[in-house]
Design a protein around this nucleic acid. Structure first.
Lengths: 331, 331
DNA sequence: TTTCGTCACTTACACGTGTAAGTAAAGTGT
DNA sequence: ACACTTTACTTACACGTGTAAGTGACGAAA
């Protein structure tokens, strides 16, 4: 309908210059503006429904006020959705805006970043080395769910370690791992497996017996059979996911066995359904929202000026562990 | 590190003017460019890793190449995540980019849209009337998950109708509805309820018996008890969700009853776990990806020039119903 | 040879914003 | 009364792009 309303329109309506409008709306200190004209500008802007063009602002500043979160091509799980949620809140609180973009399958992230020039970057998906280097070269601050050096926030978030610890303390000496056979989750699956193998080694256990299955009772019962009748039988299993844990429970009941007596099963994620399983699922809960908040803090801390408008005031969530054991009945 | 590389840099490297670069890279017909200089520009751009600034391009064009999908403040369910997935693919295929933004709780969408000026808008969240009007005034084409006039794509997507139809055809005369007590899902819950009430009326059934529960076995068993011992006992129940269906199954087993003999239970969404339930869950599957594709088509059809680069070539998915009954054992 | 059109470009402007530098008037110190 | 600072603004430029309008060279028609 009506043309777009620019700061020029506001200036005309308020009877001042465009620069004055900009000074008022951006609250520049160091500039002196009378209270009366300030009010005139403010009311004019409100009446006209003025919203500054991000494009122009970004062009001028050389950097947008968007924080870009890159999602993996695979469908979003609940956990990742929650991460998005928490990050969104945190970013909002810092006066920025979070937008999410699902990276296409073989797609490179660098061109998008170079053209959007976001204020910060949250990587929730693994990238190839060259693409990652290209990203780093853009100078945009970023936090990555992929990094493996930061201790508590490795790609596995410490889930595998907690699963093994619980099983080991419960007396299990040989443990199994159920990973998805589907190709979409491979990088997370590999990260989990590495963490579990490392934890087994640390607890002085044999290497785990790995099975790759689909979310299917028959598939799962096959895996369960191989575990139970192995030379060194498996007595406790780490599932990739609560969903895969459900599959294992179904597989057990197909063989007329049940958890935890025949096979202890521990899941991951603590989905709402976990407490409704029979038996209720022991699992590792992931405070995905908190992780999202954390990563948003990490990504944006470098650009929020100390004491400025968007400074984080609440308690730093840094030290709270993002995962926790939830003891129920299945392990 | 290095400064941002602009079209000016490319021009200098290729030994031509900036305009030529623009003509080459945007493939303007009507301009004559020698093949040799064309190649020189192309290689220069590739070597420098040139990516045009969206900000500047948007400013110039008056409209960005982003399609904005607005998400509800409540946590994303799996279905919505899938919608995002499908929409993302479709938008990508049209040569645009999809970005998602979670709308803050009381937040207005209009300012964001006015400042981003996306090419199109996909509303996956309900908005207040004034905000909606403000959006419409921006002139950005949009598709809405909220609209209730488009027949197959009402806010309920036809789920409620399918649930009731199945129960009615199985001979159930009094049906119940299990809705979430949590406040986050209210608008979807109300839409479902309205659809179910309408369907009951159409099938000549009594109004349904509504129970609002949490994802808790005890809560669910209470509801089940009230249904079974009502003056006119309920024999079949529509659950809001497969998760709530799981809760009802758990509630039944707490009372030593089971589906479908004591109470038929039908879910919605067909989550992967649905087939792992005992008994396997009869449910209404939602082709969320397809819905996403559909909405992306709806939102972008007006701006893709016919025969142009991003024209949709595949079969129109318009007429495929987005939901389908999945017959298993629980109803 | 002159005129005219086509080719292959280049020059110049606009998009809307943030901010450094400039300016006229009013106030302050001696 | 004069110089000098402060106040309250305004003027002017840059950010990187797309594109209409302009330009010189070259070939063909008259």
């Amino acid at each position: 309908m009506h043309r777009k309303v620019t700061s020029h329109d506001v200036a005309r309506a308020a009877g001042v210059s465009r620069a004055t409008v900009s000074y008022v709306l951006n609250g520049r200190s160091g500039q002196s503006i009378t209270e009366t004209t300030r009010q005139r500008v403010l009311t004019a802007a409100a009446k006209l429904g003025y919203a500054p063009s991000t494009a122009a602002r970004t062009l001028r500043r050389g950097q947008s006020d968007l924080v870009l979160m890159l999602l993996p091509p695979e469908p979003l799980g609940r956990a990742l959705a929650m991460v998005l949620d928490g990050a969104s809140d945190q970013v909002e609180q810092a006066g920025l805006r979070l937008i999410a973009h699902r990276l296409p399958d073989g797609g490179a992230a660098a061109p998008l970043v170079r053209s959007l020039v976001p204020a910060a970057l949250i990587l929730a998906t693994p990238l190839q080395e060259p693409d990652l280097d290209a990203l780093q070269a853009t100078g945009v601050p970023m936090a990555s769910l992929q990094q493996d050096h930061a201790d508590p926030l490795g790609p596995d978030l410490g889930i595998g370690a907690l699963q093994v610890q619980h099983l080991a303390r419960s007396g299990h000496r040989r443990i199994g791992v159920a990973l998805p056979a589907a190709s979409g989750y491979q990088w997370r699956a590999e990260a989990r497996l590495a963490a579990i193998e490392e934890a087994c080694h640390r607890h002085g256990l044999q290497p785990p017996a790995v099975e790759r299955i689909n979310l299917d009772p028959a598939d799962a019962s096959g895996a369960v059979g191989r575990w139970l009748f192995a030379d060194t039988p498996v007595t406790g299993v780490c599932a990739f996911d609560d969903e895969y844990a459900f599959a294992l429970l179904a597989g057990l009941s197909m063989l007329n066995r049940s958890a935890p007596s025949d096979l202890a099963v521990i899941g991951a994620e603590d989905i709402p359904l976990a407490r409704l399983a029979v038996p209720p699922l022991t699992t590792v809960s992931v405070h995905a929202r908190r992780i999202g908040v954390l990563f948003a803090q990490l990504a944006t801390e470098s650009l929020v000026e100390p004491g400025g408008f968007g400074t984080v005031t609440g308690a730093p969530e840094q030290n709270l562990p993002p995962v926790a054991l939830v003891r129920r009945a299945s392990a």
